[in-house]
Write a protein that binds this DNA or RNA. Sequence first.
DNA 1: CGCCAGATTGAACCCACTCAATACCGGTGG
DNA 2: CCACCGGTATTGAGTGGGTTCAATCTGGCG
Lengths: 232, 232
Amino acid sequence: MGICVATADRSDTQPARHVVPGSLAGHLPQTLLLPRRRSRRRQVVYRAGQAARSVFLVHAGVYKTTLLSDDGRERVTGFHLKGDVMGVEALGEAAYRCDATALDTGELIEVPRSLVFDPSAGLLEHVTRALADTVRRDWYWMLTLATLDAEQRVASFLLDLSTRQQSLGYSPHRLLLRMTRADIGNFLGLALESVTRVLSRLDDARILRVACRDVEIVDLSALRRLARPAEP
Amino acid sequence: MGICVATADRSDTQPARHVVPGSLAGHLPQTLLLPRRRSRRRQVVYRAGQAARSVFLVHAGVYKTTLLSDDGRERVTGFHLKGDVMGVEALGEAAYRCDATALDTGELIEVPRSLVFDPSAGLLEHVTRALADTVRRDWYWMLTLATLDAEQRVASFLLDLSTRQQSLGYSPHRLLLRMTRADIGNFLGLALESVTRVLSRLDDARILRVACRDVEIVDLSALRRLARPAEP
DNA sequence: CGCCAGATTGAACCCACTCAATACCGGTGG
DNA sequence: CCACCGGTATTGAGTGGGTTCAATCTGGCG
């Protein structure tokens, strides 16, 4: 497998054919009236400490949220695709608690907090759902971090992306990773070299076809088997 | 340090002098009218798959919630003290997603979901806060799992318990662990032997005084130093 | 009274980390 | 236009922390 670098993927996002279940998208008739925000690679949507006046619905592109501890440790808390909501974790607080950054060109819909808590808007219940979804997703990843080895974690990560892309109407076999190996490793609790090694190994095993950010899942069922521990 | 076993702590909980910030406790004037449920060691409050009709406010005792994956992996997602709310992660779903178990004698206040979503009750906003708190706490632990070694994780765990006990009006120095080493290790992503080893080491270093479930924090500031990575 | 769950401790192994070198692309400045 | 540089990715070698396996100990409970 050849060496490769950060090629800025310029491929535009394809049109989504499905609505993400559980998202705010289907429940925001006022969506078109809300302010939108375009963002470019590395652009910051909000930072920890800033006054949290809105939540952000991802409309296009991929974003990451990162948590920074006071002693300098950093961790990617999640990657966010179309339909995901960012900033809900700040709803009980005055300020955001993490940074949100665009990994690529994208577009956000900004939903003011006043609207979220406005009973007549009927959003609170849906935001509650989004939050509960977040908790369940986090628990799933905590389980993954605590019980799986490097190979299983990376496989789980790819499968998660694949599933989410599929539910958005994209191909589940073709992944264009917008995040770096360091981001993935950070999210999975692995060194970036470990991520690379696993990807190389899965490429050798003909399960993946890895060309830097461009990953093709050749054998989906084999990948699924890899993502879970061996049966006793 | 001597060998010790699971001694069922019969010491009753002391009265709390403070209200947990962010909990439902202060916002439930109807609390006294709601059904309560006493529970004993190992008793199950709810199980994954059961219809989720209520959330549960911990009134006394310690509970744990555990997530079970379809391939048999299990993980403790959290330990819950007085003032914490269990079951909010199921708010967007028909059924609970995890098991909740009492680690000791305790008492719960059952809040029906219908009341949670009743606008006139004014609970939804507070439940949203509880959920956002959960997300932030989970993120903190994900950061811990991903970036800290065994000693730092165990130290962080003890400090977290200490802080929570203090905010409930108890001593921050005296911890009566209601959970087993296996529970702690599972929660922290460590083997139970590693937890034991760290506790023994901290006992040797005069930072803790460990007698099975009874842990005294002798040197709180040293423990705080241990919980963070060495300065560069 | 025996059994079992929980806790502790030791020894050997192994996976993932660290350190290091190499390669490649994109943008920038001369 | 081209050389250079910073960010990203890959791969190898060696090390170490945590796991695994095992034995032992204790007290509660049936």
